[in-house]
Design a protein around this nucleic acid. Structure first.
Lengths: 195, 195
DNA sequence: CTTGTGTGTTAGTAAGCACTTACATACAAG
DNA sequence: CTTGTATGTAAGTGCTTACTAACACACAAG
């Protein structure tokens, strides 16, 4: 028994291929080759190409990873909390860059599944932030904003920064630049929501 | 002579098809049918499917549309200027929603062309905002932020809001909600960059 | 009336695709 | 040694695809 089973290897290979070329441009032959198995073996584990895709969506979704972002915010001030969350969020996206790419390119093709993943993802993130804001609201005299809108704005800055650099421009952002940008975003945002 | 030539009809049809199903899943037969011409005629105008795609990229790029966003900001305060820009930016994205979808789904396939369009787009937008900030910087005692980072943050909030609702969740945002959200974003942002 | 231009129809080709069938082989467990 | 399980190879099927060739028709301009 290998460290990763044949099925695992196929799903991983599919993940890599789909993220590089998209679903339609990836052939089952290619997936098999990447996985280091024969095409026939591939079809012994999955009866259709679509099944491979769906299995891959399940296994590589970043929904579970999201929980790693959750932090203990008691005792830490809001500024540091936001910075920490921003960094963790960005790194999560980086770690699952391939998955992000797949989601972007297959929204049309597998819209139901992807809408599902994305909406769960956003709900979790937003409610995480909102509960943090709520716990700090009395300490810091925040404006009476719609917290959900505020959360969307904050997440949006970081998400968009990620998309622009990593997905569109394919430009690596080094840690120093990332930290500067995140610090600026947090500063703007925090100042913005304070009374 | 028709109001739109045969070539125009083909490019328009390709635009519609590609945005709905993606490049690979769209057949030349389908494009021809959508355009209301025969497939042979299609190949009389374009020698390959890829040529149609590239022609479509040229014609439907939102780069030219971007100049409609530019406004006269003299005499208007920064808050109203930003709100106006945000609304116009959002509406431009809406107007070219199909193009955005194509860019997202074909980054892998036509990365060179799309990177080019996207980076021009961002540069234009950023420099537009930066020059506005600079013209107001003395009036309003803005913090000594990196203006480019500030611009990225502001654009990012709106862009991400658009992507989430219109592209991912396929949820229509009505004008009232859009205005509320934009007002909130501008408030947060403006407060955030002030001293 | 002729000629050129733009288009349609019909039929095709060569390639590539997802997926299948049949058979062979390696190997671990009993 | 036998049997079951996991895999490979070779060959192929039926379908779809981008793209082509050949011919016919409509029609406007000279």
């Amino acid at each position: 028994m290998d460290i990763s089973s044949t099925k695992d290897k196929i799903v991983k290979a599919a993940y890599d291929c789909f993220s590089e070329k998209g679903y339609n441009a990836t052939t089952t032959k290619e997936i098999a080759k990447t996985a280091g198995v024969s095409e026939v073996t591939l079809f012994r584990y999955f009866s259709t190409k679509s099944d491979i895709f769906k299995e891959m969506l399940k296994r590589y979704s970043f929904l579970p990873v999201l929980y790693k972002i959750k932090i203990e915010s008691d005792g830490i001030d809001l500024q540091d909390t936001l910075k920490l969350i921003a960094v963790k969020f960005y790194n999560t996206l980086l770690e699952r860059k391939q998955f992000v790419r797949i989601m972007l390119s297959e929204i049309n093709h597998y819209s139901e599944e992807i809408i599902d993943i994305y909406s769960n993802f956003r709900e979790e993130l937003d409610s995480m932030l909102i509960s943090i804001f709520e716990s700090k609201i009395c300490d810091l005299k925040l404006k009476n904003f719609d917290l959900k809108v505020a959360s969307m704005g904050f997440i949006g800055m970081i998400y968009s920064f990620f998309l622009t650099n990593e997905i569109f421009l394919k430009k690596k952002v080094d840690d120093i630049e990332l930290n500067n940008v995140i610090n600026a975003f947090v500063d703007i945002f925090l100042n913005g929501i304070k009374k």
